[in-house]
Design a binder for these strands. Structure first.
Length: 270
DNA sequence: CTCCGATCCTGATGGC
DNA sequence: TGCCATCAGGATCGGA
Protein backbone atom coordinates (compact mmCIF):
# COMPACT_ATOMS: atom_id res chain seq x y z
CA UNK A 1 0.00 0.00 0.00
CA UNK A 2 2.07 2.83 1.23
CA UNK A 3 4.86 4.59 -0.58
CA UNK A 4 6.33 7.91 0.51
CA UNK A 5 3.25 10.04 -0.27
CA UNK A 6 0.93 7.69 1.62
CA UNK A 7 3.23 7.51 4.64
CA UNK A 8 3.60 11.30 4.60
CA UNK A 9 -0.19 11.66 4.40
CA UNK A 10 -0.55 9.39 7.43
CA UNK A 11 2.16 11.32 9.27
CA UNK A 12 0.40 14.62 8.71
CA UNK A 13 -2.92 13.13 9.76
CA UNK A 14 -1.76 11.60 13.02
CA UNK A 15 0.64 14.34 14.15
CA UNK A 16 -1.85 16.82 15.68
CA UNK A 17 -3.51 14.00 17.65
CA UNK A 18 -0.22 12.78 19.11
CA UNK A 19 2.09 15.71 19.81
CA UNK A 20 2.31 16.55 23.51
CA UNK A 21 0.08 13.66 24.56
CA UNK A 22 1.05 10.98 27.03
CA UNK A 23 0.66 7.26 26.37
CA UNK A 24 -1.69 5.64 28.86
CA UNK A 25 -1.65 2.11 27.53
CA UNK A 26 -0.17 -0.11 24.83
CA UNK A 27 -2.21 -2.97 23.38
CA UNK A 28 -0.52 -5.73 21.39
CA UNK A 29 -3.01 -8.20 19.95
CA UNK A 30 -0.85 -9.95 17.41
CA UNK A 31 2.88 -9.36 17.82
CA UNK A 32 4.04 -11.36 14.80
CA UNK A 33 4.64 -8.76 12.11
CA UNK A 34 7.81 -8.69 9.93
CA UNK A 35 9.59 -8.69 13.25
CA UNK A 36 7.90 -9.28 16.59
CA UNK A 37 6.49 -6.21 18.30
CA UNK A 38 8.56 -5.93 21.51
CA UNK A 39 6.41 -6.80 24.52
CA UNK A 40 8.53 -4.37 26.53
CA UNK A 41 6.62 -1.48 24.91
CA UNK A 42 3.81 -2.13 27.37
CA UNK A 43 6.07 -1.00 30.19
CA UNK A 44 8.30 1.37 28.27
CA UNK A 45 5.72 3.80 26.86
CA UNK A 46 2.97 4.50 29.42
CA UNK A 47 3.60 7.73 31.26
CA UNK A 48 5.77 9.14 28.47
CA UNK A 49 4.75 12.02 26.19
CA UNK A 50 5.13 12.13 22.42
CA UNK A 51 7.54 14.87 21.41
CA UNK A 52 7.68 14.47 17.61
CA UNK A 53 6.21 12.57 14.67
CA UNK A 54 8.66 12.31 11.79
CA UNK A 55 9.11 10.29 8.63
CA UNK A 56 12.30 8.79 7.24
CA UNK A 57 11.84 6.86 3.99
CA UNK A 58 8.65 4.87 4.55
CA UNK A 59 9.21 4.68 8.29
CA UNK A 60 7.17 6.71 10.76
CA UNK A 61 9.21 7.81 13.76
CA UNK A 62 7.27 8.63 16.90
CA UNK A 63 9.68 10.41 19.17
CA UNK A 64 9.67 10.15 22.96
CA UNK A 65 12.14 11.63 25.40
CA UNK A 66 13.78 8.23 25.93
CA UNK A 67 13.68 6.79 22.41
CA UNK A 68 11.72 6.34 19.21
CA UNK A 69 8.86 4.10 18.17
CA UNK A 70 9.56 3.02 14.58
CA UNK A 71 6.52 2.01 12.52
CA UNK A 72 6.53 0.61 8.99
CA UNK A 73 3.28 -0.13 7.16
CA UNK A 74 4.62 -2.84 4.83
CA UNK A 75 2.27 -3.62 1.95
CA UNK A 76 -1.07 -3.54 3.71
CA UNK A 77 -0.65 -1.55 6.92
CA UNK A 78 -2.76 1.42 7.89
CA UNK A 79 -2.84 3.73 10.90
CA UNK A 80 -5.98 5.40 12.17
CA UNK A 81 -6.82 7.80 14.93
CA UNK A 82 -9.94 6.47 16.64
CA UNK A 83 -11.82 6.98 19.90
CA UNK A 84 -10.14 4.71 22.45
CA UNK A 85 -13.35 2.70 22.94
CA UNK A 86 -13.60 1.68 19.26
CA UNK A 87 -13.79 -2.14 19.13
CA UNK A 88 -10.86 -3.79 17.39
CA UNK A 89 -11.49 -5.60 14.13
CA UNK A 90 -9.70 -8.43 12.40
CA UNK A 91 -6.01 -7.58 11.75
CA UNK A 92 -5.95 -4.71 14.26
CA UNK A 93 -2.64 -5.67 15.83
CA UNK A 94 -1.44 -2.70 17.86
CA UNK A 95 -2.87 0.30 19.76
CA UNK A 96 -1.34 3.28 21.46
CA UNK A 97 -3.93 4.68 23.84
CA UNK A 98 -3.39 8.32 24.74
CA UNK A 99 -4.43 10.67 27.53
CA UNK A 100 -6.74 12.60 25.17
CA UNK A 101 -9.10 9.64 24.69
CA UNK A 102 -7.63 8.85 21.28
CA UNK A 103 -6.15 5.62 20.06
CA UNK A 104 -3.53 5.22 17.34
CA UNK A 105 -4.40 1.85 15.81
CA UNK A 106 -2.34 -0.24 13.39
CA UNK A 107 -4.16 -2.62 11.07
CA UNK A 108 -2.07 -4.85 8.81
CA UNK A 109 -3.68 -7.90 7.16
CA UNK A 110 -0.52 -9.20 5.48
CA UNK A 111 1.69 -8.45 8.49
CA UNK A 112 4.65 -7.23 6.47
CA UNK A 113 4.73 -4.12 8.63
CA UNK A 114 6.77 -3.48 11.76
CA UNK A 115 6.59 -1.79 15.15
CA UNK A 116 10.00 -1.45 16.76
CA UNK A 117 11.71 0.50 19.49
CA UNK A 118 15.06 2.20 19.35
CA UNK A 119 16.84 4.36 21.90
CA UNK A 120 18.74 5.90 18.98
CA UNK A 121 16.69 5.68 15.78
CA UNK A 122 19.22 7.24 13.43
CA UNK A 123 21.68 4.51 14.39
CA UNK A 124 19.13 1.73 13.95
CA UNK A 125 20.22 -0.90 11.39
CA UNK A 126 17.05 -0.38 9.34
CA UNK A 127 17.61 3.36 9.07
CA UNK A 128 21.31 4.01 9.06
CA UNK A 129 22.12 2.71 5.56
CA UNK A 130 19.31 4.53 3.79
CA UNK A 131 19.91 6.77 0.81
CA UNK A 132 18.73 10.38 0.59
CA UNK A 133 15.16 11.58 0.80
CA UNK A 134 13.95 12.24 -2.75
CA UNK A 135 12.48 15.64 -1.89
CA UNK A 136 15.71 17.01 -0.49
CA UNK A 137 18.18 19.05 -2.53
CA UNK A 138 21.03 16.58 -2.33
CA UNK A 139 18.90 14.21 -4.39
CA UNK A 140 19.35 15.54 -7.91
CA UNK A 141 20.59 14.63 -11.38
CA UNK A 142 24.25 14.83 -10.44
CA UNK A 143 23.73 12.46 -7.52
CA UNK A 144 21.74 9.96 -9.59
CA UNK A 145 24.30 10.08 -12.36
CA UNK A 146 27.16 9.41 -9.99
CA UNK A 147 25.34 6.58 -8.21
CA UNK A 148 24.30 4.85 -11.42
CA UNK A 149 27.76 4.49 -13.01
CA UNK A 150 28.82 0.81 -13.22
CA UNK A 151 25.25 -0.33 -12.57
CA UNK A 152 24.20 -2.81 -15.19
CA UNK A 153 20.74 -3.56 -13.74
CA UNK A 154 17.52 -1.94 -14.99
CA UNK A 155 16.92 1.67 -13.96
CA UNK A 156 13.57 0.74 -12.43
CA UNK A 157 15.12 -1.59 -9.86
CA UNK A 158 17.93 0.89 -9.32
CA UNK A 159 15.43 3.56 -8.29
CA UNK A 160 13.62 1.17 -5.96
CA UNK A 161 16.87 0.41 -4.10
CA UNK A 162 16.60 2.24 -0.78
CA UNK A 163 20.36 2.69 -0.66
CA UNK A 164 20.03 4.85 -3.80
CA UNK A 165 16.94 6.83 -2.86
CA UNK A 166 14.16 6.10 -0.36
CA UNK A 167 10.39 6.16 -0.55
CA UNK A 168 9.98 5.39 -4.25
CA UNK A 169 7.81 2.29 -4.63
CA UNK A 170 6.25 0.49 -7.54
CA UNK A 171 3.52 2.99 -8.37
CA UNK A 172 5.61 6.13 -8.32
CA UNK A 173 8.65 4.65 -10.04
CA UNK A 174 6.45 3.73 -12.99
CA UNK A 175 4.94 7.20 -13.07
CA UNK A 176 8.30 8.94 -12.73
CA UNK A 177 9.90 6.90 -15.52
CA UNK A 178 7.00 7.80 -17.77
CA UNK A 179 7.26 11.48 -16.86
CA UNK A 180 11.00 11.40 -17.59
CA UNK A 181 10.55 9.49 -20.87
CA UNK A 182 12.85 6.65 -19.80
CA UNK A 183 12.23 2.96 -20.49
CA UNK A 184 12.13 0.89 -17.25
CA UNK A 185 14.55 -1.72 -18.64
CA UNK A 186 17.31 0.71 -19.51
CA UNK A 187 20.50 -0.25 -17.66
CA UNK A 188 20.98 2.41 -15.00
CA UNK A 189 24.62 2.88 -15.91
CA UNK A 190 23.86 3.99 -19.46
CA UNK A 191 21.69 6.95 -18.46
CA UNK A 192 23.11 10.29 -19.53
CA UNK A 193 23.57 13.14 -17.11
CA UNK A 194 20.66 14.86 -18.86
CA UNK A 195 18.39 11.85 -18.34
CA UNK A 196 19.34 11.63 -14.67
CA UNK A 197 18.31 15.24 -14.23
CA UNK A 198 14.97 14.57 -15.91
CA UNK A 199 14.49 11.55 -13.67
CA UNK A 200 15.29 13.35 -10.44
CA UNK A 201 12.96 16.18 -11.41
CA UNK A 202 10.21 13.73 -12.37
CA UNK A 203 10.50 11.80 -9.09
CA UNK A 204 10.22 15.00 -7.06
CA UNK A 205 7.30 16.27 -9.07
CA UNK A 206 5.33 13.01 -8.97
CA UNK A 207 5.86 12.60 -5.23
CA UNK A 208 4.94 16.21 -4.42
CA UNK A 209 1.79 16.02 -6.51
CA UNK A 210 0.82 12.73 -4.87
CA UNK A 211 1.33 14.16 -1.37
CA UNK A 212 -0.90 17.10 -2.31
CA UNK A 213 -3.53 14.60 -3.46
CA UNK A 214 -3.39 12.74 -0.14
CA UNK A 215 -1.74 9.69 -1.73
CA UNK A 216 -3.04 6.97 -4.02
CA UNK A 217 -5.96 4.76 -3.01
CA UNK A 218 -6.08 1.65 -5.18
CA UNK A 219 -7.86 -0.65 -2.81
CA UNK A 220 -8.08 0.43 0.78
CA UNK A 221 -5.53 3.11 1.64
CA UNK A 222 -6.85 5.88 3.86
CA UNK A 223 -5.24 8.61 5.87
CA UNK A 224 -5.46 8.84 9.66
CA UNK A 225 -9.03 10.12 9.52
CA UNK A 226 -10.15 7.37 7.16
CA UNK A 227 -10.31 9.47 4.00
CA UNK A 228 -8.93 8.00 0.75
CA UNK A 229 -6.36 9.76 -1.41
CA UNK A 230 -7.15 10.79 -4.98
CA UNK A 231 -3.83 10.55 -6.85
CA UNK A 232 -5.12 7.37 -8.53
CA UNK A 233 -7.08 9.70 -10.81
CA UNK A 234 -3.78 11.16 -12.00
CA UNK A 235 -1.92 7.92 -12.69
CA UNK A 236 -0.76 8.01 -16.29
CA UNK A 237 0.59 4.46 -16.72
CA UNK A 238 0.38 2.44 -13.49
CA UNK A 239 -2.29 -0.25 -13.82
CA UNK A 240 -3.26 0.96 -17.30
CA UNK A 241 -2.02 -1.83 -19.57
CA UNK A 242 -3.82 -1.67 -22.93
CA UNK A 243 -5.18 1.83 -22.40
CA UNK A 244 -3.99 4.65 -24.66
CA UNK A 245 -0.88 6.51 -23.57
CA UNK A 246 -1.86 10.01 -22.42
CA UNK A 247 1.09 11.35 -24.43
CA UNK A 248 0.77 9.65 -27.80
CA UNK A 249 -2.23 7.31 -27.76
CA UNK A 250 -0.25 4.11 -28.26
CA UNK A 251 -1.34 1.32 -25.90
CA UNK A 252 0.39 1.17 -22.50
CA UNK A 253 2.46 -2.00 -22.21
CA UNK A 254 2.92 -4.29 -19.23
CA UNK A 255 6.09 -6.09 -18.19
CA UNK A 256 7.35 -7.96 -15.14
CA UNK A 257 10.65 -6.91 -13.60
CA UNK A 258 11.71 -8.87 -10.57
CA UNK A 259 8.34 -9.85 -9.23
CA UNK A 260 6.80 -6.43 -9.82
CA UNK A 261 4.63 -5.06 -12.59
CA UNK A 262 5.94 -2.33 -14.83
CA UNK A 263 3.78 -0.17 -17.09
CA UNK A 264 5.21 2.03 -19.81
CA UNK A 265 4.78 3.50 -23.27
CA UNK A 266 7.29 2.15 -25.79
CA UNK A 267 6.86 5.22 -27.95
CA UNK A 268 7.34 7.83 -25.20
CA UNK A 269 9.94 6.01 -23.09
CA UNK A 270 13.35 5.17 -24.51
C1' DC B 1 30.05 -4.69 -4.68
C1' DT B 2 25.92 -5.90 -7.61
C1' DC B 3 22.12 -8.57 -8.80
C1' DC B 4 18.52 -12.02 -8.60
C1' DG B 5 15.11 -14.95 -6.56
C1' DA B 6 12.81 -16.61 -2.55
C1' DT B 7 10.38 -15.25 1.28
C1' DC B 8 7.18 -13.49 4.95
C1' DC B 9 1.32 -13.20 4.99
C1' DT B 10 -3.78 -12.49 3.82
C1' DG B 11 -7.27 -11.27 0.59
C1' DA B 12 -9.23 -10.07 -3.95
C1' DT B 13 -9.93 -11.52 -8.45
C1' DG B 14 -10.55 -14.18 -12.55
C1' DG B 15 -10.61 -18.61 -15.18
C1' DC B 16 -12.63 -22.99 -15.50
C1' DT C 1 -21.03 -22.20 -6.48
C1' DG C 2 -16.28 -23.87 -5.54
C1' DC C 3 -11.50 -24.55 -6.38
C1' DC C 4 -7.12 -23.10 -7.87
C1' DA C 5 -3.66 -19.98 -9.60
C1' DT C 6 -2.13 -15.43 -9.74
C1' DC C 7 -1.39 -10.98 -8.16
C1' DA C 8 -1.01 -6.94 -4.74
C1' DG C 9 1.32 -0.43 -2.68
C1' DG C 10 7.67 -3.69 0.69
C1' DA C 11 12.14 -4.92 1.69
C1' DT C 12 15.27 -8.22 3.77
C1' DC C 13 18.10 -12.02 3.23
C1' DG C 14 21.16 -15.47 1.12
C1' DG C 15 23.70 -17.04 -2.54
C1' DA C 16 25.78 -16.56 -7.20
Amino acid sequence: MPELPEVETVRRGITPHLIGHTVEKVVIRHPRLRWAIPATLKKRLPGHAIASVKRRAKYLLIGFGHGTLIIHLGMSGSLRILPAATPAQNHDHFDLILDNGACLRLRDPRRFGAVLWSADASGHPLLKELGPEPLERQFNGAYLHEMSRERRGPVKQFLMDSKVVVGVGNIYVNEALFAAGIHPQRPAGCLTREECTRLATAIKSVLRTAIRAGGTTLRDFTGAEGRPGHFQQKLKVYGRAGEPCPGCGQPILHLRQGQRSSYYCLNCQR
